[in-house]
Structure formats: C-alpha cells, structure tokens
C-alpha cells in the first residue's frame, strides 16, 4: 500500500531530539497545593453570593396586585405557562427549528394545568371555609363558557382593584365564585400556605419545585428583581451573577446570539431553539476540528506555536 503523503496539520513529525528529566508526580502535587492555596485565598477575599430564594409569600406580600393578576392569568389560561406548550401542556406547538418541532415530538412529560394546579387544587386543600367550598363547587359545576365569562368580568375589574388592610378589593359584579376564590388564594399566598400546597401536591416528601417556579416566573416580581441585577436574557444575564461576583463567563457565546439579529429580531419567536441549533453546529465544528480542512491549518499559519517552542527552534 502506498504511503500517504505527510500532512502537517494531521501528522506529526517523529521526534528524535533530547529528553529532559520530568517528575510527573511532583508536578501534580505542586499543582494541587498551588490551586488549593489560591482557592483558599480567593474564598477568604471574596466569599460567595447567596441571595435568599424568593417565595410566593414574599411576592404576594410585596406586590399583592401583581400576584392576583398573575393568578388570574393562571385561572383563565392566558399566562406564560398556560400557553407554553410542551413539555407542560398542549396549548402550543412550542419552538421549532424550521419544520422541526422538537419540543412537540418529545411530548408533554411535565404536566401542568395552571387553572387546576395553581389555583383550584391548592384552594381545595383549605378546610373549614364554607364560602370557599361553595365557590369551588359552583366553579367546578359551571360550563367553560360560564367560567370564561366570570373570569373576563373579574379580569376587567382587576385594573381598578386595590389591596389594602389585608383585603383584596375588586369590584366585579358578574364574576360568580371567582372573587371568593381569588381572595382566598391571595390570603393563602400571603400566609405561605400556597408555597407548601404547590410542592406537596403529590405527597409529604418533595424535591420538585416546578410548579411554584413556573407560577412565580409568570409574574413580574422575579423578573424585576433580575432586571435590577442585570440578569435578564437581553442583558447578557446568562453569564452574570447576583451581586458583583463573576458568573458563568464561559456562556458568553451562547448568550451573545440572543443579543444579535436575526435571533433578536425576525427569529425571535424561535430564538431559543435556533440559538441552540447554531451552538450545536459550532460545538461540532470545535469537536471535529482535527478533520476540518482550513480550520485545522490556522494554528500552523498563525505561528503562535513558534513562541511556545522557541527553544526547540533555536536549538534545531
């Protein structure tokens, strides 16, 4: 078989030069000691961030009307989560890459029905509240058209609603059981009971915070806090951290695409899917670099290697 021609970007020359003593174990030990010391110094100097988690309790106490408005969108099915699509529900197709509806193909594996899971089910856990029990029974027995009409009436009145002295005042006259439900849910939220009800729906032990996180993400409390700390997606927030700490700076390229057209403009509706697709292509290019003509020749052409191996070339 004929010998293949030597390709300087694929093949390496055979080294016939000198060898020098090298103590790999000593090198490794020194590295561990130096890194350990540096870690301790940095930790003592700068500590680490730990901003307390937000709860539905803190949210509904800080901005009760934002909570009520969000809860109402969960009930009438217009919130971000209610209209999300897969993997939470089938209200939408989800994002797509051209004709590829990846999210839809993977299916609904994290079932969330916002009206029931965020409003009705938590309210039904409250005992000894006859007015609420009646309201829930009325709501459950109503047609969907009837519910929609109550919800629309309440949503309209919510614009002029107020919260003072621990009471929600919304002058909805044709909202059926909705005012009683919303007042009870607000009280429940402000007491902290809603936080618990959302995580313990499936039992005592819990490690899954999907529901309260989705609920809070639908409101503006979490996002306003993030905006103030420069953490929003359109602020390159993915690589930022709470406080003045360095963040996941290695995500710079991923977060950058969200800031530039067409991802930030005409492709906006599918930006997440398209940025991911684009990053996958770039990652493949990086991983397959040794096989890509042109890209693999750059190191030989830019000649930075001459600095690294300058002793070698001087002695050659």
């Amino acid at each position: 078989m004929a010998k293949k021609a030597f390709n300087p970007d694929v093949d390496a020359p055979v080294y016939k030069g000198k060898y020098a003593p090298y103590d790999i174990i000593k090198e490794g030990t020194i590295a561990v000691v130096v890194v350990a010391l540096l870690t301790v110094v940095l930790a003592v100097l700068f500590s680490s961030p730990d901003e307390k988690a937000v709860t539905i309790k803190t949210w509904s106490n800080a901005t009760p009307m934002d909570f009520v408005a969000t809860a109402m969108t969960e009930l009438d099915g217009t919130s971000g989560t209610a209209t999300y699509g897969p993997p939470y529900n089938n209200a939408a197709t989800g994002q797509q890459v051209g004709p590829l509806t990846l999210a839809k193909w993977m299916g609904i594996n994290v079932n969330v029905n916002t009206a029931n899971d965020f409003v009705v089910a938590p309210l039904s856990t409250l005992a000894d509240q006859p007015a609420l029990t009646t309201a829930l029974t009325t709501f459950a027995g109503a047609s969907s058209a009837q519910r929609a009409s109550w919800e629309a009436d309440y949503s309209k009145a919510l614009g002029t609603g107020t919260f003072s002295g621990g009471t929600l005042q919304v002058s909805a006259t044709n909202a059926g059981p909705v005012p009683v439900m919303m007042s009870a849910l607000t009280a429940m939220a402000r007491s902290g009971a809603l936080d618990q009800a959302l995580v313990t729906a499936k039992g005592f032990y819990t490690t899954d915070y999907t529901k309260p996180l989705l609920f809070m993400a639908d409101g503006s409390f979490l996002a306003n806090k993030a905006q103030a700390q420069h953490l929003s997606g359109d602020q390159w927030g993915m690589m930022n951290e709470t406080g003045s700490y360095p963040g996941q700076a290695w995500l710079w390229l991923y977060t950058m695409w969200y800031q530039v057209p067409p991802f930030s403009t005409s492709w906006g509706a599918n930006a997440d899917a398209l940025v991911w697709a684009f990053m996958m292509i770039l990652t493949l290019l990086l991983a397959l670099m040794p096989w890509i003509p042109g890209l693999r020749s750059i190191p030989r052409k830019v000649k930075i290697y001459r600095l690294i191996w300058r002793e070698h070339y001087k002695n050659a």
Partner: peptide
Amino acid sequence: AVFNLDHVG
C-alpha cells in the same frame, strides 16, 4: 469576605 461583593455590580 475581605471584599464584600454583595452589592449590585
């Protein structure tokens, strides 16, 4: 922490 970084950056 010697340098407090718990403020908006």
